[in-house]
Design a protein around this nucleic acid. Structure first.
Length: 589
RNA sequence: GGGCCAGUAGCUCAGCUGGAUAGAGCACCUCCCUUCUAAGGAGGCGGUCCUAGGUUCGAAUCCUAGCUGGCUCACCA
């Protein structure tokens, strides 16, 4: 039984004894005692006064006396206003450390669901940007947390590999590419393809302004520009299976995939399977037919297919165009179906930005209307957009923060920062490089993952990401300090009976004690920032302990081993949390 | 216009299912490296928790209305 349950039950018994009232154990309000007062756990007694018919102070006093007498872990108590502060026996915490610090599965849960988690979802016409970075870090780490909580998790990616946008890149390459390739130009594949996407837009705009100066309206010009018409023709040919177009499409997509793989690798994310939209968009049409047969959907005069979601508070939604071609949601229906056939999941998570909240509501409702067994297991893990100080990132206007560039800059910053400190002069070339990478990615990943996913964030490229304070490197630093101690002095047998716990040590143990709860909460709320913030507060407590306490110095052997053991465990929990975040811990820095 | 989300220190963010004087980091100002890694520690400065009502013994937290910002309501994906 855990501490909270132990105390709550004690309170329930005390109330029964004192006032002859039966209360449920989970109805007792328990908090951590705030710093200014003596104690570890606090019972909020205000709600209990209606049973005691006494003042909060008197009620707290009476309950406190019984707890002190009857609950072993309660050492002492004090009552301030309506708060009953309980001091927990040091022995309790020492025993907890003694019994749990060897547990290799500490923090792990037993939830047992089968989950498919989709994340990343890039278009194959341009490189990844900061928005994708947030997506990938969230997807990867959330999958880790869900796994750690005891679930089976399959990570999958979805490539948006077809459509007009891809045709724009293809057309621009045909027209202006002069047969260049990523190899011939030395460019990373996805950047190479993206270059032509931008080129398309440039020439398209030029064409529009030429048409406008010849008297066309802007709307006319936008529709009539020959470049756009050609792109549309290309899309049509693609759908008809034109071999030449398909070859080109395959070639350019392959360049993109090659580039993406490189970025996945540097970021340290991975996938069990990559779904491609082009493989599944036809499948969605079958579902539309199914819905028509069941009269769940309906046809308009122009043969387009719709679903009426007005009873659910939404609109009428188009599911298939009059010409029979599929729209965005048609594809997602097909992929959802395919994914269920592939995995028979209990839960299918989509890590997609909040701008698509409406889309996923619709998707789920449509699948529910089709009575799909997997519909209610669909969960949209919606996260906030990453904006720039002056608004949204726009790839065509070149205001996006490119993923590869950002990582490169972070590594360069880590390198100069590390060299300024001059602590790694004995590192080999490879060791140094690995460290720069660990620190750079630690800073970047932590920077993103410490924020609640739902929150939209503003990224200012002018302000560099910190390496000090509430950052990844701070936590890595504390881990490294611990490893340094452990290298210097092995731990020998500890006599726990004679340990005299000091307050910083107790605070550390209390923080470690929380870890399993944090994991549960993070998994329940799909909120990885719980883990990030926890890692910081643990590292901060350790840093305070480290600064104020001599661990290896002139200390009695038993105390020394105890402090080392506490340090080691702290390091292991920090390591575990950072594993979940997908951040590497260096051994030295 | 309808729907959804957000508004906490100069900046970036915590604040769980309502609980004590609202917390961190950055920035700014003081101190602290002959203790084990100072990417650190101790302290200071800094807040009408968007506004107005309401529920409650108690509200940053819940409810209502309003203000501000974002997203969305495409035969784009």
């Amino acid at each position: 039984m855990n501490l909270e349950q132990l105390v709550s039950e004690g309170v329930v018994v005390a109330i029964k004894t004192l006032f002859d009232v039966d209360l449920p154990v989970d109805g007792i309000a328990l908090n951590e005692t705030i710093k200014d007062y003596k104690g570890d756990l606090t019972v909020v007694v205000f709600p209990l006064t209606r049973h005691s018919k006494l003042s909060p102070e008197q009620t707290g006093q009476l309950i406190g006396e019984i707890l002190k007498e009857q609950v072993q872990v309660v050492e002492d108590f004090n009552v301030i206003k309506g708060f009953l502060n309980l001091e927990i026996n040091n022995t309790y915490y020492i025993n907890f450390l003694k019994n749990s610090c060897q547990d290799q599965t500490y923090g792990r849960g037993k939830e047992g669901r089968k989950i498919v988690l989709e994340y990343c979802g890039p278009n194959t016409n341009k490189p990844l940007h900061l928005g994708h970075i947030r997506n990938m870090l969230l997807g990867y780490s959330t999958a880790n947390v869900l796994k750690f909580a005891g679930n089976k998790v399959h990570k999958v990616n979805i490539y948006n590999d077809r459509g007009i946008a891809i045709c724009k890149s293809m057309l621009a390459w045909q027209k202006f590419g002069n047969g260049e390739t990523p190899e011939s130009t030395g460019m990373k594949g996805d950047h190479f393809v993206g270059k032509f996407y931008v080129a398309f837009d440039k020439y398209y705009k030029e064409e529009i302004s030429a048409l406008v100066s010849n008297g066309a309206t802007k709307e006319q010009a936008e529709q009539e520009a020959s470049l756009l018409r050609e792109a549309r023709e290309m899309l049509l040919k693609w759908e008809q299976g034109d071999k030449e177009i398909l070859d080109l499409w395959n070639k350019m997509n392959a360049w993109c995939y090659e580039g993406f793989e490189e970025t996945f690798k540097t970021l340290g994310v991975d996938f069990e399977k990559h779904y491609k939209e082009s493989d599944y968009y036809l499948r969605g049409k079958e579902l539309v037919e199914e819905g028509l047969a069941k009269d769940t959907f309906y046809k308009k005069a122009d043969d387009s297919v719709w679903v009426d979601l007005e009873d659910e508070g939404l609109d009428q939604k188009l599911l298939l165009r009059g010409d029979g071609t599929s729209v965005y949601i048609t594809q997602d229906m097909g992929i959802a179906e395919a994914r269920y056939q592939d995995y028979q999941f209990d839960e299918s998570i989509y890590v997609v930005a909040s701008e698509q909240d409406y889309h996923f509501k619709v998707l789920q409702l449509v699948l529910e209307k089709l009575e799909k067994p997997y519909a209610k297991g669909i969960f949209h893990l919606s996260y906030g957009l990453v904006n720039l100080p002056d608004g949204r990132m726009k790839s065509r206007e070149g205001t996006v923060v490119d993923a590869d560039d950002l990582i490169k800059e972070m590594i360069a910053t880590a390198e100069s920062h590390t060299n300024d400190l001059g602590k790694i002069d004995d590192f080999s070339e490879e060791e140094s490089k690995a460290l720069y990478r660990d620190l750079a990615l630690g800073a970047l990943k932590y920077f993103i993952l410490k924020v609640n996913p739902k929150r939209s964030v503003i990224f200012n490229p002018e302000e560099s990401i910190d390496f000090q304070g509430n950052t990844g490197p701070f936590i890595q630093f504390n881990y490294v300090r611990i490893q340094s101690l452990l290298r210097k002095q092995p731990i020998e047998t500890i006599d726990y009976e004679t340990i005299n716990l000091q307050s910083e040590e107790k605070e550390l143990i209390k923080e470690i004690y929380k870890y399993p709860q944090i994991i549960k909460l993070a998994a329940k709320n799909y909120d990885i920032s719980e883990v990030s913030n926890y890692a910081f507060s643990l590292a901060k407590l350790y840093s305070k302990f480290y600064a104020g306490t001599s661990i290896l110095g002139d200390t009695p052997a038993n105390t020394k081993y105890f402090r080392l053991q506490l340090s080691k465990w702290t390091g292991e929990v920090l390591q575990s949390a950072f594993d979940l975040l997908g951040i590497q811990m260096p051994e030295r820095m």
